[in-house]
Every structure is written in structure tokens, then in C-alpha cells.
Design a protein around this nucleic acid. Structure first.
Lengths: 157, 157
DNA sequence: TATTGTTATACTCTATAACTATA
DNA sequence: TATAGTTATAGAGTATAACAATA
């Protein structure tokens, strides 16, 4: 094995890896509860995004908020609609679009999972510190906003 | 749509989502360079982990460091070994194990990608701030360590 | 018996392109 | 012509269980 150092930062200092490992460590605690309800992570993201929206939203918005591609959203939504968790409504004035919202049943499902999810969250806060966690969340949001803003500026130019 | 608030934090305050969105915003900048070299994210993680190891490592260690499952590692390593990027060596004294390391060719591939990767990193530091980024990395690592430590303690008990 | 790793299998997501309907 | 969304398709990863070899 060569001893020549590579001209790049060590793996342990990689931001994508740090984000991935932190997400893994976090999700490891949430997965059992999702599995119990037969939900994939992506399905849960969709349900969660719809539950948090204060009004029905379109596919493109849902895709952006869940970090899923449009074809994935189409499939996941079709499945959840089949299961009676999601409702589609036509948008007046533009027949290409439709909006998505949770049905009563879908809302009930989210409500059923919420307590376990919050308990898991409390455990993470207890282990890491609530203030630290809040600060970390702020930094993560800012990083996302900053990087997306630069991307948008590039696109516009 | 019901107006009853859900008994859980808003989607925007979800740690798993914040980590995922931050990772997406970050990876969006690295992907073009990987695609250029015909590598998937996971293959790159494997190559990167081996490049950073100061000695050959076993499949189980590689799986842990890359956040991949053992069957995925087996397949990815087989492919990269076929392509001549990775070398397997028997472990003396235990025929079940073998160690993995980059070949000269694999090392050359990583070396070729490294400059682009570092340039992307520089862009992220410029946009977000090098100090802030370093602090964020520290917090992410700590979060991971803390959560894994609790998990380990649970297992042991 | 426990461990390391591979194989088998089913499912899901990713990614891109092509396509439909509509604007 | 551009946009929103769906469909088609290929490829890869995820997850679990079963298995082989070895310790």
C-alpha cells in the first residue's frame, strides 16, 4: 500500500459523510416505529410533509420538501392514495396540477405515530442536549439555505 | 383539511430532515464530478474510505465506515475489484476474513478526483464560512458519537 | 455455538428520458 | 414553446434471511 498522502481531506473530515453518519445514527432510532406501521422512510417523509403543510400542496412542492424526485413522489403518492391516506384535488384554472392533502385516515396515522416519534426525539435531546440540538438544527438549515441560494443565483445568471 | 394541530414538532424542525436536506444541498455539488467518472455515491464512499485508511481493512469495518450494509459492500467491492480498483488479501490465521485496499489504479482514480472534490469543498467553505463549517462538523461528529454510545450501552446491558 | 462474509430474494428508490396534457 | 406531472426503464441500494466456511 502506498504511503503517499492523498491530496484531499481525510474521510473523517468529509461533510457529506458527517451528515450521512449523523443521519444514520439518528434514523436508527426512528426506524423501528416506522417499520411497526409498515412505512418506508420516504413514505413517512411524504406523510410528514403533508401533515405539516397548512394547506394542500402540489407534487413539485412535495418533491422539494421531501428531497424526493418527481417520479418517486408520483409512485409514493399513488400508493398512499390507494391506501386511503392521501387525497388529490383538482386545481381550478390549471388542469395540469392537482393538490395533495392527508385524508382523515392519513392524519390519524400520523397522529398515532407522533408520540413515539416525539419520545425518540426527547431521547436524542437528553443525550445531546436540547440547546445544542437546536443550535445544530439552525446551522444545518442555514447551510442548506446558503448552498441552495448560491445554486439559484448560478441558475439565474 | 383538519385544523387540529398535530402533537409533534413541525417538519421543518425535524433533525432527520435537516440532515437530509443539508446532505442533498451538499451532494448536489459533488455529484457531477462523480458522474463524470462513472461512480455512484456508494462506490465513491468505499473508495474514499479505503484511501483514508492507513492500512487494509475488513469488510465489516468498511461497512461501518461507509454506512453501508454488508451485502451492499460485498457487491460494491466485487465490482470495484473486477474493475481493478481494489485488492483483496487473505488474513493470516483466520480464513473467514480478508482485507481490502486500493490498488495503484484505484489510488490513481481517487487522486484524479480529489482536486475537483477539494475545489467543491472550497466553494462550500467560501459560502458558509470555514470556521462555521469546522464547528458544524465537530457537532455532527459529536452527535454521532453520543447516539452510537447510547446504542452500544443499550446493547451491552 | 458464534462469527465473518456471501448469496438469495423481494422490494424500493434513483435517475434519466420520453411522453401526455395543458398552459 | 414551456411547464406539470406521469410513465417507462434500467440500474442500484436496502433489508432480511439463509447459508457456507471457519473459529
Amino acid at each position: 500500500m502506498s504511503t503517499e498522502p492523498l491530496p484531499m481531506r481525510p474521510f473523517s473530515a468529509s461533510l457529506p459523510m458527517a451528515l450521512l453518519l449523523a443521519r444514520e445514527a439518528t434514523m436508527r432510532r426512528f426506524r423501528p416505529s416506522l417499520a411497526e406501521h409498515g412505512l418506508t422512510e420516504q413514505q413517512w417523509r411524504v406523510l410528514r410533509a403533508l401533515a405539516s403543510a397548512d394547506q394542500p400542496i402540489e407534487v413539485s412542492v412535495l418533491a422539494e420538501r421531501t428531497a424526493l424526485l418527481a417520479p418517486s413522489v408520483t409512485r409514493i403518492v399513488a400508493r398512499l392514495a390507494d391506501d386511503g391516506m392521501i387525497r388529490r384535488d383538482a386545481v381550478v384554472g390549471d388542469a395540469r396540477r392537482s393538490t395533495l392533502a392527508l385524508t382523515t385516515r392519513g392524519r390519524r396515522l400520523v397522529t398515532r405515530i407522533a408520540p413515539q416519534s416525539e419520545a425518540t426525539y426527547a431521547g436524542i435531546e437528553a443525550a445531546f442536549g436540547a440547546d445544542r440540538l437546536a443550535a445544530l438544527l439552525d446551522e444545518l438549515d442555514d447551510l442548506t439555505v446558503v448552498l441552495d441560494a448560491v445554486d439559484d443565483a448560478r441558475e439565474a445568471s
